[in-house]
Design a protein around this nucleic acid. Structure first.
Lengths: 141, 141
DNA sequence: AATCTATGTCAGATTTCCTTACATGCGTTG
DNA sequence: CAACGCATGTAAGGAAATCTGACATAGATT
């Protein structure tokens, strides 16, 4: 219930997130730039990541490893949620998604590739060892 | 089981811990100096706190508010555990405790005060609202 | 060959944190 | 009362971590 809240508490600096995800700072910032995550900021403008952000980055990483590009990942995961916009207006959500779809620059090949990858993944999560290095499932119950 | 592990992951810098506990950096460092917590360090010597550390600090704070001094808190809570010394040798534990008891500098009055406070606290944990600001129980299941 | 994508790397500035030292209010104690 | 110790505040100087912006590049796409 306030589970949502704890997962969204801005807690870690980028250095920790690097270790937790095995991504470089460059990558993390790049993904932020492309709206795959939206970490909070300190007063001094330093990024602060929540558990949700970290998990999200782990998903991004997995999709990257599967060969998706940024546009593909955005489509698969949907836009990043800001910690401050937690319970978003469904209408607005929908509108945003449509708007995004509109300006999306995927080729057909890209699209088919993306869908294939997703289909390959879902069935039973084979190959998705929940105790992979960097996996955060162990952080929650 | 690996619950222990996740709680002991060194994650937050002192700035976050300040906000989480409402303690000043000065206080946190002072408590560390007196072995009430033992946060890990980055390569560059910056403190990194685990959930356990933060919870521990919250307990320290509560005892401080109840009027205990450092020696008293040390006695009530026992010595801080290092993240690296997770499953300590019971013998060593015992030895340490004895050694500590020996050099403890509590007056008798102090001791009685401390015990009274503890007795006042335990029964049903009245007054210990698990949703107090800064309480971390909401971080775990 | 010209572009584009995702990432590496470097530089300069800013923020956060570290240690050390000194100051202070408040009990305790001689 | 004067001296002291405890817990904390505060300031200084330095080091670590992070930030943004710019340029470099390998691999795929056009």
């Amino acid at each position: 219930m306030n589970d949502e809240l704890r997962r969204n508490l801005a807690l870690f600096p980028i250095g920790i997130v690097q270790k937790l995800t095995d991504l470089t700072a460059r990558q993390i910032r790049y993904y932020e730039q492309h709206n795959l995550v939206q970490p909070a900021r300190t007063e001094g403008n330093q990024r602060l990541f929540s558990f949700n952000d970290v998990e999200r980055l782990l998903e991004v990483k997995r999709l990257i490893d599967q060969g998706l590009n940024i546009a593909g990942i955005k489509t698969v995961l949907g836009p990043a949620k800001t910690a401050s916009s937690l319970l978003p207006d469904p209408k607005k959500e929908q509108a945003e998604r449509v708007a995004q779809d509109a300006k999306r620059d995927l080729t057909d090949r890209e699209l088919r590739e993306r869908l294939k990858q997703e289909m390959l993944r879902r069935p039973g999560m084979q190959g998705h060892n929940p105790f992979n290095a960097g996996d955060l499932s162990r952080f929650f119950h």
